[in-house]
Design a protein around this nucleic acid. Structure first.
Lengths: 264, 264
DNA sequence: TTGCATTTGTACGTATGTATC
DNA sequence: GGATACATACGTACAAATGCA
């Protein structure tokens, strides 16, 4: 537990590296409490502020959870696996029926709300226009793991079960198809990382400076008009999205104009 | 430009919110310099350290770029769009031939290197085993936008063009298929957000505390043995990955056991 | 219930180092 | 070389939350 103040790396980075290594090595089990910040400061021979800065960084990285008045704790196992929303429809469309049983998915709100920029752009409307939104929170055991919202144009779902706070016994998209007669034909997924909104941070029980992984999912009907725009957010450092798929055989085709992933 | 020290929000958060709003409103154009930190401190009536803390946060969020001795600058708000690697093989397999022309993709290294944990797990080998790696860097104009690496088992590509530092006139996976006789049959993508390695941060010209969006791509042959494991990283807050696809019709199928995305 | 010690979180002033112009 | 600007560390002080006696 020593720090070299003259080294190229700043003390707070050296300490961060040491703590990271010890956490990965298992010196403290998930959920276990680290020594207090003043105690670490004397152990490392630095000022309290310097250790505080280290802790701030490791918290943003998602390794630590801090509770004022209580202590600093190692976050539980990294990596929850989720599928990208393509899996929502599945290679086998419809297998999601028992999803509610495996997760504790909680329908939080059904009603009209002004839409955020992402959703507005997807629908091609102005920001702040009121849409119908169904918001949910997913928990595993105690911990919240996903906050999500599905947005619809009010005219599209007026008088249907979608605008009522009902919990359905089939996936939402199947309910929408049955109630509106429009079929989910294609979709567009957009993944990015950003800081959470204040509300997202509260619901996910993370701090506002911990990044979240965000998926914007736009579902289109046969005329390529948006039926539903869904947003989902997970605690960033803890989550990874996975997807598996077949690679098609060689077929001639046209090049596209969009920027593309290089990968080799 | 005033701060309320008695409010519920801490001063450094209040200042962050104000600066965020002004940047989004366009008070400073992308690339433009903000007032110096001491100057902002006197304007807001707080200590220099408090503004410094605000700037640290906005830099991690990706809004600002700081250059010691020079100043604090607004990062371009442009979102670069990339496709998920499924697009690598395309609905039209093979259109990637002209990709190298559209981007300035630079082959940085071809040789043996000890593999990182992600790649080891994908191949089912131990961490640190030496694999053949082809690493590249993609630039648009001046700015680096993607660092990537493709990993192979040495035995799989021994004596082929893959282990030579050649630039091919077709996509890498086509070269591999032609040289090894194995066909890319299925793949698995895994997206997550994390802090960059030291090297990634240098190559992407971002700070080590700015998160990156990472894609791990595993390509399998007909026997579901990994042929290639590719990793790509982009500056997180600036990038979003998109994908479009058709939604299949209703077909009965078996439920799977994997945790899944809820989304409604 | 009250009171007190502990712990995290923030702010401030000062000092020093380093990079840029 | 000098001025400017960002980056870090240290010590002190105080606030808020927690836990325990």
């Amino acid at each position: 537990m020593t720090i070299n103040p003259g080294a190229a790396e700043f003390p707070h980075r050296q300490i961060a590296a040491q703590l990271r290594a010890r956490i990965h090595r298992g010196d403290w089990a998930p959920g276990e409490r680290l020594p207090s910040i003043p105690s670490l400061a004397t152990q490392f021979g630095v000022a309290k502020q310097t250790v505080q800065r280290t802790i701030d960084q490791l918290r943003i990285e998602g390794l630590l959870i801090t509770r004022p008045g209580s202590g600093t704790f190692v976050r539980g196992t990294k990596r929850r696996m989720n599928r990208l929303s393509r899996g929502r429809y599945g290679a086998e469309r419809g297998y999601h029926a028992e999803l509610a049983a495996r997760y504790r998915q909680h329908l939080m709100q059904v009603g009209a709300m002004p839409c955020p920029p992402d959703v507005a752009e997807a629908f091609g409307i102005d920001v702040g226009v009121h849409l119908l939104v169904r918001r949910h929170l997913v928990r595993t055991g105690d911990a919240p793991v996903e906050v999500g919202a599905s947005w619809f144009r009010p005219a599209d779902v007026r008088g249907t079960s979608i605008e009522r706070p009902d919990v359905f016994d089939r996936p939402l998209y199947q309910e929408v198809e049955a109630e509106t007669g429009r079929r989910y034909t294609s979709a567009r997924d957009q993944v990015s990382a950003r800081l959470p909104t204040r509300e997202e941070a509260e619901l996910l029980q993370i701090r506002p400076d911990t990044p979240v992984l965000v998926l914007l999912h736009i579902a289109y009907d046969a005329e390529h008009k948006p039926i539903e725009v869904a947003q989902a957010a997970w605690p960033g450092p803890m989550t990874s999205l996975t997807e598996e798929y077949k690679i098609p055989g060689v077929r001639p085709g046209l090049p596209t104009d969009e920027p593309d992933l290089a990968l080799g």
